[in-house]
């Protein structure tokens, strides 16, 4: 088992791109090797060691690597990008693109995550105890497939476009979400504990379940009647009927 603890050396004001903070990059590496990994601050190339203090205990491959982030990472982007195994524990907030394209392992966040958390993720698990911003589990600009597999859990709220262009996997938001969750959804499952508005426009496949109130329905869904899902009765809709979509939308 290898545990790597990293902390910002000072307050980070200019945003940092740190896709190298990942068990795949840290696994089996010494403190010095990790410190020498590249990071970018604004348009300046730098190293993780310049920006963060790094402490390594034990040694092991990526699957046996735990990364603990202490302190404020709210201006640090792309943490855990493309990770395939291991664990990242974040004790505060993080910036955009957390766990983008990850295919395995687990990321756990005590605070909030900024936009595009779990973007285009293929597998693994992302747990956020705070809130998520826009485009949770979505595709980046123009992409036809967002999240393709794995699971995202948000215990707080999320903003607009949860799971936009999602093609697989599962997203659970315990609180409310902004408008258009599951926009252009093409597979996968989104469960919203709280309220939302205009879910599932342009859906071709996939499932959206809303347990709270839907402020406004898009007029592109066809009501199919009542149906019980896991013992709870919902109004079942299918759509988007304009695109002959086979998406399922369950609303209380």
């Amino acid at each position: 088992m290898q545990t790597v603890t990293i902390k910002p050396r000072k307050e980070i004001k200019i945003s940092v791109e740190a896709e190298n903070i990942s068990p795949d990059k840290f696994g089996g590496k010494t403190e010095k090797e990790i410190q020498s990994l590249v990071a970018w601050m604004g348009n300046q190339k730098t190293t993780l060691g310049e920006l963060f203090s790094v402490k390594v205990e034990g040694s092991g491959p990526a699957a046996d690597t735990k990364i603990v982030l202490e302190g404020d990472f709210s201006r640090v982007k792309r943490i855990g990008e493309g990770m395939t195994a291991g664990l990242i524990m974040i004790n505060g907030n993080v910036d955009m693109h957390l766990g983008a394209k990850m295919s395995g392992g687990k990321i756990s966040v005590k605070g909030n995550v900024d936009s595009w958390a779990g973007r285009e993720m293929k597998g693994g698990e992302l747990i956020v105890e705070g809130n998520a911003a826009y485009y949770l589990g979505a595709g980046y600009r123009g992409e036809s497939c967002g999240m393709r597999g794995g699971k995202i859990t948000v215990l707080g709220n999320a903003l607009d476009f949860v799971g936009e262009h999602m093609c697989g996997g599962e997203i659970f938001v315990k609180g409310n979400t902004g408008i258009l969750p599951g926009l252009s959804n093409n597979g996968g499952k989104i469960v919203i504990g709280g309220n939302t508005s205009r879910p599932g426009s342009e859906m071709s496949k996939g499932t959206i379940i809303v347990n709270g109130k839907v402020d406004e329905m898009m007029p592109v869904f066809k009501l199919e009647g009542d149906e019980a899902v896991d013992g709870v009765t919902y109004k079942k809709y299918t759509g988007d009927v304009i695109g002959n979509g086979k998406g399922l939308l369950y609303v209380k």
Binding site: G139, Y140, R141, G142, E143, S144
Partner: peptide, 8 residues
């Protein structure tokens, strides 16, 4: 313009 994903 319509394929920003291509420029990735």
């Amino acid at each position: 313009m319509m394929r920003p994903e291509d420029s990735r």
